[in-house]
Design a protein around this nucleic acid. Structure first.
Length: 303
DNA sequence: CTTGCGACCTGTTGGC
DNA sequence: TGCCAACAGGTCGCAA
């Protein structure tokens, strides 16, 4: 679920809930979900008892100083210059519960399968308890995400290796134009999804931005005139900002990272709407695989 | 260098 | 109703 707006929403929630809390204990139920140090994910993918032990011991007694987002990553700054870097991939969720909520199911906003269940659940892989009795659960049905504990030097290395492109929300048009020239041979959809070009946009917001901009996802970037680039640049920000507002409004005291819990789902114009009429011209929306991801768009409006 | 595809996982959905 | 292929908000590695 999580693209930039969802991760941003979670970041805000975590910043509020976790700040100044001190870790009391950590339980790891699935070794491969946790990493320590800057190694490539694939190299430390399988996990081990030793890594888990290092992860747990490294977190114990640390205080949460700050929560930030970079692209689709969450970065939790801990005391002693340690950092917890989390990527939720397709199905990761962070669920925070205060002490008095712990043993009762909570209705999590409008999340689809929302965690009414008892925690830890079947899909809880990591559980962090704080000294005030509150807890943070990392749930992930598909197990693609990870939590990584690093020191400052390793943090820098991790992000250097990942080679992320600029944040779309603070990207100037001049910069956007520059990267579109560098990546002029890419199709518009590939351009938006490529995290080394621009970071944080995923399949939903790529399709939504292209629809608003009346640009066909297969269109080569080099064929766009300046005005179209401007429109796209503006619409990316518009879509992301609106989604952040919607996500933020639906999440109150606690969080789920289930993107479908945000109210923005109701506002999707094309994503997930193959066969439905285009909201502008009523032509049936079509879908097509582009770069192994499904794109949904209007053949009539998007040229 | 790029493109394209399988792999990583589990759960849900839609067509027959 | 039941089965099972196809698909899901992401990324990585590998082969061509």
């Amino acid at each position: 679920m999580p693209e930039l707006p969802e991760v941003e929403t979670i970041k805000k929630g975590l910043a509020k809930s976790l700040k100044h809390k001190q870790v009391k204990d950590v339980f790891v139920y699935t070794d491969k979900m946790v990493k320590v140090g800057a190694g490539k994910i694939s190299n430390i993918k399988k996990g081990s008892k030793k890594l888990t032990k290092d992860f747990v011991n490294g977190l114990k007694n640390k205080k949460v100083l700050k929560v930030e987002r970079r692209a689709k990553y969450l970065i939790i700054t801990l005391s002693n210059n340690y950092f917890l870097v989390i990527h939720l991939r397709m199905s990761g969720q962070l669920i925070y519960r205060r002490k008095k909520q712990l043993h009762q199911p909570i209705l999590l906003s409008v999340a689809k399968n929302a965690t009414k269940e008892k925690l830890p659940s079947k899909h809880t892989h990591v559980q962090i308890s704080f000294k005030d009795g509150s807890q943070l659960f990392y749930n992930d049905t598909r197990q693609f995400g990870h939590l990584r504990l690093v020191n400052q030097k390793e943090l820098i290395e991790v992000f250097k290796t990942s080679n992320l492109g600029p944040e779309p929300l603070t990207l100037s048009f001049a910069e956007f134009k520059k990267i579109s020239q560098i990546n002029k041979n890419k199709r518009a959809k590939d351009f938006l999804l490529n995290q080394t070009v621009i970071s944080g946009i995923g399949n939903i917001y790529a399709d939504e931005s292209l629809f608003l901009s009346k640009i066909n996802p297969t269109r080569k970037i080099s064929s766009l005139i300046e005005q179209q680039l401007k429109t796209l640049h503006t619409n990316i920000k518009k879509v992301l900002n609106k989604a952040i507002l919607a996500g933020g409004s639906s999440i109150e005291t606690f969080l789920t990272t289930n993107g479908s819990s945000g109210k923005y789902t109701e506002k999707h114009l094309v994503y997930g709407k193959v066969g439905k009429p285009c909201p502008v011209c009523k032509t049936k929306l079509v879908s097509k695989k582009i770069g192994s991801r499904t794109s949904t768009y209007c053949k009539h409006c998007q040229k």
